[in-house]
């Protein structure tokens, strides 16, 4: 209806027909409901405002629940106790089998024999040396992977053509077992620490890069829009909005990156021994195998496993839990 459009245009200033019509029912309404309407809508100003504030505060109270953090005991019984009970049961069954079936001790050592092997290694100082060497390499290699992976991930996340070109290859590298790099690394770097670090780097970096890309991709578009509306340029949009919003994906990538670092490190240490490569847990594992010392092998496997779990529990789990709880992504008591 074109005439409507022109009418609306003129309605602004001259205010003919339409506008006049509206103000009439307005005043008529007030006249027809005397007292009630005016009393409800126009009381004295300050108390009116106070009334409104208490009304709003009441509604706010009704609509929010105080957050109940799970008690320490609750956490202990729901997330700490079950795995401990399971492990103890497993060891009990193992010991029971050894006692009842009496298998050859060099094929099925008892839990006590494995514990003794750990004790022996500790006493000889080999265990401490191996743990320290491996842990140092694992952590240092992981940090290098973080330093390499983070800018690479950011670059790929923000530059679409680059991501289309390189993204699939990075994802592919994540599938490639990093042990596959060991022979190449030995040929390139010889039996040196560089070989170990190279393998760790190739193992961990793709996870970190992919985690960061996934994190940036999952940033809700309205947060970017708000950032723009608030006046953030590309730089501050990235540091103040996109990066913090992408943090959950990034931390997930770091966690996986650590797991891959640790695995790659063990693979490298088992295969590449000798030369200037120091004595790590992988080397210890390989040495025990050469001595056909199954107790020592199992003991080393348990230590490798324990360190992986320990770092996860002591570092990544609290970091992740705190971050998710702050963002309301962790339902209290659900775990």
């Amino acid at each position: 209806m074109p005439h409507d459009t022109t009418l609306a245009k003129t309605a602004g200033r001259v205010a003919p027909g339409e506008a006049g019509r509206v103000s009439r029912p307005d005043s008529a309404g007030e006249a027809s409901v005397p007292g009630l309407d005016t009393a409800a809508s126009l009381p004295t100003r300050p108390s009116d405002h106070e009334d409104f504030r208490s009304l709003e505060a009441g509604l706010d109270r009704l609509q929010t629940d105080p957050e109940r953090a799970p008690s320490a005991w609750n956490r202990f019984t729901t997330s700490v106790l079950p795995p401990i009970v399971f492990v103890v049961a497993l060891i009990a069954v193992w010991q029971l089998y050894v006692v009842i079936a009496q298998p050859r001790p060099d094929i099925v050592p008892s839990p006590l024999a494995v514990a003794a092997a750990i004790g022996d290694a500790w006493e000889a100082g080999r265990l401490q040396l191996a743990v320290l060497t491996s842990l140092e390499r694992g952590v240092f290699g992981f940090l290098i992977a973080v330093v390499v992976g983070t800018p690479l991930g950011l670059l790929l996340a923000e530059v679409k053509p680059l991501r289309r070109a390189i993204g699939p290859i990075i994802s592919g590298l994540q599938v490639l077992p990093s042990v596959a790099w060991v022979p190449a690394a030995i040929l390139w770097f010889g039996l040196t620490d560089a070989t170990v670090y190279f393998v760790v780097l190739m193992g961990a970096t793709p996870s970190i890069v992919n985690g960061l890309i996934a994190g940036v991709e999952q940033v809700p578009p309205q947060l970017r829009r708000v950032g723009t509306v608030l006046g953030a340029g590309p730089g501050r949009l990235a540091t103040l909005v996109v990066l913090p919003a992408a943090l959950p994906g990034y931390v997930a990538g770091l966690k996986q990156g650590w797991a891959f670092s640790w695995r790659s490190l063990m693979a490298a240490e088992i295969i590449a021994t000798g030369g200037t490569i120091g004595f790590g847990l992988g080397s210890m594992l390989d040495q025990s195998r050469e001595l056909a010392d199954l107790g020592g092998v199992l003991a080393t496997i348990l230590v490798i496993l324990a360190i992986g779990i320990l770092i996860e529990l002591a570092f990544f789990a609290p970091l992740e839990r705190r971050m998710l709880r702050r963002r309301g992504l962790l339902v209290a008591g659900a775990k």
Binding site: D4, L7, A11, A19, V22
Partner: peptide
């Protein structure tokens, strides 16, 4: 724009 209304008294 298909129509427009003005309200004189809004309080």
């Amino acid at each position: 724009v298909a129509g427009e209304w003005r309200i004189a008294e809004t309080a």
